[in-house]
Design a protein around this nucleic acid. Sequence first.
RNA 1: GCCCCCUUAGCUCAAUUGGCAGAGCAACUGACUCUUAAUCAGUAGGUCGUUGGUUCGACUCCAACAGGGGGCACCA
Length: 579
Amino acid sequence: MRRNSLPPGTTLSPHCRLKPHERLKTPMAEPKTNAERQPEDASSSQLEAVRRDKLRRLREMGVDPWGGRFDDRLLIGAITARAGEVKFQQEDGSQVEVPPLVKHEGLDPKTGRATTQWMVEEAAGEAPVAFRDWVTKLGAGEFHGPKVRAAGRVVLQRDKGKLLFLDIQDWSGRIQLFVGRDQVGPENWELIRCIDLGDIVGVDGELRRTRLGELSIFADRLHILTKSMVPPPEKHHGLTDPELRQRMRYLDLTYGEGVLERFRNRTKIVESIRGTLSRAGFCEVEGPTLHSIAGGAAARPFITHHNTLDMQLFLRIALELHLKRLLVGGMERVYELGRVYRNEGISPRHNPEFTMLEAYQAFGDYRTMMDLTERLIVEAIEATGGKSRVTWGDAVIDFTPPFARRTYDELIAEHAGVDPRDAVAVAAEASRLGFVPAGKHPDVVKNFVFEQRVEERLQGPVFVIDYPASICPLTKRKRENPEIAERFELYIRGMEIANAYTELNDPDLQEELFKTQLAGLPEEDSMARMDTDFVRALRHGMPPAGGLGVGIDRLVMLLTGAPSIRDVILFPLLRTEIA
RNA sequence: GCCCCCUUAGCUCAAUUGGCAGAGCAACUGACUCUUAAUCAGUAGGUCGUUGGUUCGACUCCAACAGGGGGCACCA
């Protein structure tokens, strides 16, 4: 930090972060219109002033409101797991175990708010008893349990005067703190009076139950570890505005129900994929993200520039061509899991940057990759603790392997009601759907029909196999039928999740296909831009191989029940916020 | 790029036909040592996204702009 680089004895006021000449460059303009005025309205500055006042009081007490290292705390999840150690100690010294408790949740008919009550099930078949009544029957005594230390953010607070209940939350769970004025002592109580919702606190205390049964840390001492200067969102609803949820993801993670869990599941899925590939003998690499030719997919790239080389560059749209160069180089099983960038539309299924897995296996083919795909998905589901039947929206997706395998033509016949071998009938159907088939390759026309009529009906998971060769320029053809490419796409809920080929390794054919693509289509629509360096690599001999691409974000959507890709990307692209 | 919808207190949401801008949570003051979406009494908090227009009068009607959401197109 900058503070550490200052000479001893020098202090840096937070109001003087800019050097003097920088401050002169940005004189404060007098606000003229509402648009220019800072939206520091009375209400929010008033709320912050209250917290700044508490900050000042803490400093006057000699307490650092920004805390520091806090060793030896237990995760709250680990603490709640020790609930069984909490016992009721009667006056004669005998200990009573706490029987199994059941949480009764209801709605207050007056306020419509949730109510909770802990009930004791003493014996099977008998009506449960309120915990409070169960305790009363035990007579005089107290609960006792282990001494624990925890830390977390204050998410709920109930002030009873000389008694304060705080719910604190860390990333493993939530627990109630019981804080009594007489129990913590007057000095600590003064400090506790400066705690607000949203602050991060540490606690030392004893794990016990309250008379209503709630497992709680009975605080001996509270520590302020970080003061929060801004009030948190509404305690029950959290943030609902999708814009705020994305711009202030930290609040969404803290207060949004299931949000943190969803992103941790994303991490687990990615870890699982790496594990599956590693166990299958794959080697992870990092290819370049700055490409001089944006190849490997049909997409418009982001354009950038390198100053010293004075060179136009593109952010990569795919991982493919460099991974294949590595196949040539002898990396027999190789993969990359990383970001690609496509300068295209934004939708609930599209973000301009997204995470892609591409894996290549020498001496395999597209069927090899089909098996691998199934394993990747099944193991990812296991990693998140899920079952093979996953709920997504109002539907259930059954991931029990093997996934269905259907040919492209079969599906066209089934869903579009057209004979896929009859080019005239296919063209007629395409016209009916608003496509002008004239001058287009018959397979392009057929693919339009597929996209319009078939894709959205593929609830899946289903492997669509055997695509028309002419729409797959990087794919090897079937030996017995050169019209068909050895390719599959995995569809789930109408979304393309994975795409795999038996990779084309004939350099002459590859070069020819690059040229035909370039001749027939505008540059930005071209599947493959001529990449002579890649063709040169192929000339040295790329082993026959299977290649697989998986859209990780979409897979995570399906496995975590997210309706939008922006729910599984921590910081999706947004327009810059106006000041 | 095109079409539709949304934007009201820090947060979540109301506001009748164009006629004084409302509630809950959060905050503040007070009461309460076993509460749990605590409760009770009181207080404060608003340029109704922005800029124009229509009107005696606009949160409300119209236009433009900004941000967001959905759909189409593009794509995965």
